[in-house]
Amino acid sequence: EPSQADLDALLSAVRDNRLSIEQAVTLLTPSSGGGSGGGSMDAKEILTRFKDGGLDRAAAQALLAGRTPA
């Protein structure tokens, strides 16, 4: 399960175009075949909204942490 520091680094990389959204989703869902963790939004949607400015960093982190299976 990614830590808050991992999520923060991942969000920074996506925002700075050092990591594509697809690459980030793969890192967030290493063994689930890329499927959502059952959250209301999947990781790709969360990351896309964050990059487009629709979500701030704290909200994106909380959503990603919340949808990651324990």
Rank of each mutant, 00 (worst) to 15 (best):
E1T: 13
E1R: 09
E1H: 11
S3P: 10
S3H: 09
S3G: 13
S3R: 08
Q4D: 12
Q4L: 14
Q4K: 14
Q4N: 14
A5T: 14
A5V: 15
A5G: 09
A5S: 09
D6W: 15
L7S: 02
D8W: 15
D8F: 12
D8H: 08
L10F: 04
L10G: 01
L10A: 02
L10S: 01
L11C: 02
L11M: 04
L11G: 00
L11R: 00
S12M: 08
S12V: 07
S12C: 09
S12Y: 04
S12I: 08
A13G: 04
V14T: 01
R15K: 12
D16H: 10
D16M: 09
N17I: 02
R18H: 09
R18N: 06
R18A: 07
R18Y: 07
L19I: 15
L19V: 07
L19C: 05
S20C: 03
S20P: 04
E22I: 06
E22W: 05
Q23L: 08
Q23V: 06
Q23C: 15
A24F: 02
A24T: 02
A24K: 00
V25I: 05
V25Q: 03
V25T: 05
V25H: 03
V25D: 02
T26M: 14
L27D: 02
L27N: 03
L28S: 02
L28W: 06
L28G: 01
T29S: 13
S32I: 13
S32N: 14
G33N: 11
G34H: 08
G35W: 03
G35V: 10
G35A: 11
S36N: 11
S36P: 11
G37M: 13
G37F: 14
G37W: 11
G37Y: 13
G39M: 14
G39Q: 11
S40N: 14
M41S: 07
M41Q: 07
M41K: 06
D42Q: 09
D42I: 07
A43I: 15
A43E: 05
K44S: 08
K44P: 03
E45Q: 10
E45F: 05
E45P: 02
I46R: 00
I46H: 01
I46P: 00
L47G: 00
L47W: 01
L47T: 00
T48W: 05
T48M: 11
T48Y: 05
R49G: 03
R49E: 03
F50L: 02
F50G: 00
F50R: 00
K51H: 04
K51C: 03
K51F: 04
K51D: 01
K51T: 02
D52N: 14
D52I: 08
D52A: 14
G53F: 04
G53M: 03
G53R: 04
G54S: 15
G54A: 10
D56E: 07
D56A: 05
R57G: 04
R57S: 07
R57L: 12
A58K: 09
A58G: 06
A58D: 09
A58P: 04
A59H: 06
A59T: 14
A60N: 00
A60W: 01
A60K: 00
A60L: 03
A60C: 05
Q61W: 08
Q61P: 00
Q61S: 14
A62I: 10
A62G: 04
A62R: 13
L63D: 01
L63P: 00
L64G: 01
L64S: 00
A65H: 05
A65G: 10
A65L: 14
G66S: 08
G66V: 10
G66L: 07
G66C: 12
R67G: 05
R67M: 13
R67N: 11
R67E: 07
T68Q: 14
T68F: 15
P69T: 07
P69M: 10
P69S: 10
A70S: 09
